[in-house]
């Protein structure tokens, strides 16, 4: 790739990428450990976090379990946008859907979680995740590729799927067999390196 394929990354990351995590670890531990996100970025930039659809106020007590869906966002507009912020002044507005840690989770082994990236967080963290490689649902990847325009295909030379370099022309012509559940997708851009902040 000569240029980061923002449209592809954006579609996939909004739907969610799949990552391995330690069972029973806290949301903060997951973000700083598995996702390698700096503490400053977690505290200052990721102001809104959802765990299984619920806005989270305390990322130290919220625990990850197998199949958890985590969504990360920067500060959002509107009363409701502000209400979704972690520990914000308007948390009462959404108190009935706020995340409350009730269960004890298994703390052994690894689990698979789905991570969604939105808005500024998507723009800033997305490329770094894809450079390191992320698991994606094969049908999501196939669908996203099918929706790409000429603009994408003109710039796309190859994608790395399950460690194998696949020519984009092959993907465009539908000559790649997506008959799989999940695939490891890696996107590298020549001369560019995105580190997760």
């Amino acid at each position: 790739m000569e240029e980061f394929p923002a449209s592809l990354v954006s579609q996939i990351a909004q739907d969610g990428i799949f990552l391995e995590a330690r069972a029973g670890c806290s949301l903060r531990a997951f973000l700083s450990g598995e996702c390698c996100i700096s503490p400053e970025y977690i505290d200052n930039r990721i102001s809104t976090i959802f765990l299984d659809s619920s806005p989270v106020d305390d990322i130290d007590s919220a625990m990850i379990k197998d199949g958890s869906i985590i969504a990360l966002s920067a500060a959002m507009p509107g009363l409701v946008g502000a209400a979704m912020r972690r520990g914000g002044a308007y948390a009462a507005i959404r108190s009935s859907i706020t995340h409350a840690e009730k269960e004890e989770y298994c703390r052994q082994g690894t689990v698979i979680v789905r991570l969604k990236l939105f808005n500024m967080v998507l723009k800033e963290l997305g490329p770094g995740f894809f450079e390191k490689g992320v698991y994606v649902k094969c049908h999501d990847l196939a669908r996203s590729l099918a929706e790409q325009t000429d603009d994408f295909w003109e710039k796309c030379k190859e994608l790395i799927i399950n460690g194998e370099q696949i020519e984009c022309l092959r993907l465009r012509r539908g000559h790649y067999d997506f008959n799989c559940e999940t695939a490891l997708l890696t996107i590298t851009v020549s001369g560019l390196s995105h580190t997760v902040p």
């Binding site: 909004q14 959802f50 619920s54 920067a74 507009p77 509107g78 946008g81 939105f118 808005n119």
Partner: peptide
């Protein structure tokens, strides 16, 4: 956020919530 995406940046947030 507002200059980059407009108010429609809220779609993903409300949907996720």
């Amino acid at each position: 956020a507002l200059p980059a995406y407009g108010t429609n940046v809220l779609t993903n947030i409300l949907n996720e919530a």
